[in-house]
């Protein structure tokens, strides 16, 4: 199912926000790649730069923010080099984005059916009537009861779950190759969350698309994704297959994150995760996690660790592993 070809590659991405207080380095040297047919879960706490990463991929970061450096290579094309005009061919057609806060991102003055139809019209040679029919069909596909009537509704007439379904229909109407879901199920009840995830999985599998699932819910990633990437202070600190990660997370931050889950705590004692994320306005030199890391060493305060390949498809950005690349076993003992 998962192809070997890389569909999307993000290289050394830096997105900064120029504020009165200084430069806020929200995305800070991010490396990430998605293979064809892969569903990647990106997990991080609030403020770790998840949403800005998603926005940077489709080059939608606006003042005072700016993508300063880096490449976003989609099927061989660097999206950041394209003009606004050229990018429109990708947005909504090749790359579908499901934004967080569905109701806030829908146009409150346009019927939801028309919003979907407009996206379809922009990329296909069809007339308005056909586009409208496609919109109704999409609403039906995302499990909306009474789709014909619902297409005539405005966003404020819908519940959170329904608005989220509309967003999904919007993102999927042109059958994109890459789906980016930014916190698509945040704030929804577990039952609705489950229905929405069924839908996304179904579509990704049926259309053979790839997806990036941005979330702070480790449960969603464990149950739905094939790969996981952990984000901290605008960087990916660990990336690997889901099963390997949940068996034995490597980065100290990932370990702490996993141990703060109530499910894990029933059986395990928690290592305390002290303090909070470093401010993106004043990131420390060296490792971004040094302020909270229980295993911090001198080298962590001076040298930024590089992304190390420690196993098949498994990468981690930590000095604990740099020392022991040939002999991984002893690094684990040190952590245990």
């Amino acid at each position: 199912m998962i192809g070997l070809k890389t569909l999307l590659q993000i290289q050394d991405l830096h997105t900064y926000f120029y504020l009165r207080k200084g430069i806020s380095k929200v995305v800070n040297g991010l490396q990430l790649s998605v293979r064809e047919g892969e569903l990647l879960g990106v997990v991080g706490e609030s403020g770790s730069g998840k949403t800005v990463t998603a926005m940077s991929v489709v080059n939608r970061v606006r003042m005072p923010g700016k993508v300063v450096k880096g490449k976003v290579i989609y099927q061989g094309q660097d999206l950041l080099k394209l003009s606004e005009e050229e990018l429109r061919k990708y947005r909504g057609k090749e790359i579908g984005l499901i934004a967080a806060n569905a109701r806030g991102n829908l146009n409150p003055l346009v019927k939801v059916g028309n919003q979907i139809a407009n996206v379809y019209l922009a990329h296909n040679k069809v007339n308005k009537k056909e586009a409208w029919e496609k919109a109704v069909e999409m609403l039906r596909m995302v499990g909306m009861n009474d789709a014909l009537r619902r297409a005539e509704a405005y966003p404020h007439e819908m519940s959170g779950g329904m608005a989220q379904r509309v967003m999904i229909a919007l993102a999927l109407v042109n059958s994109p190759n890459l789906l980016i879901a930014d916190d698509a199920t945040n704030g929804l009840d577990v039952t609705v969350q489950s229905q929405i995830m069924d839908l996304i999985l179904d579509i990704v599998n049926k259309q053979g698309a790839s997806g990036i699932l941005i979330t702070h819910d480790l449960g969603v990633v464990a149950q739905c994704c094939s790969e996981i990437a952990i984000m901290y202070c605008g960087q990916i600190v660990e990336k690997g297959p889901v099963t390997a990660f949940f068996d034995e997370p490597k980065h100290p931050y990932s370990r702490n994150l996993l141990n703060s889950l109530p499910e894990r705590r029933i059986t395990q004692e928690r290592i305390e995760l002290k303090g909070s994320l470093s401010s993106p306005l004043s990131l420390p030199t060296g490792c971004v996690y040094q302020t909270r890391c229980p295993y911090v060493m001198d080298v962590c305060r001076k040298v930024e660790p590089s992304m190390l390949h420690v196993d098949d498809n498994y990468n981690v950005k930590c000095h604990l592993y740099q020392e022991k690349t040939e002999n991984r076993g002893s690094a684990n003992e040190k952590l245990a």
């Binding site: 969350q193 969603v220 149950q223 949940f246």
Partner: peptide, 8 residues
């Protein structure tokens, strides 16, 4: 519908 943080 609760998604358990355990892929197994």
């Amino acid at each position: 519908s609760v998604m358990k943080p355990d892929p197994k």
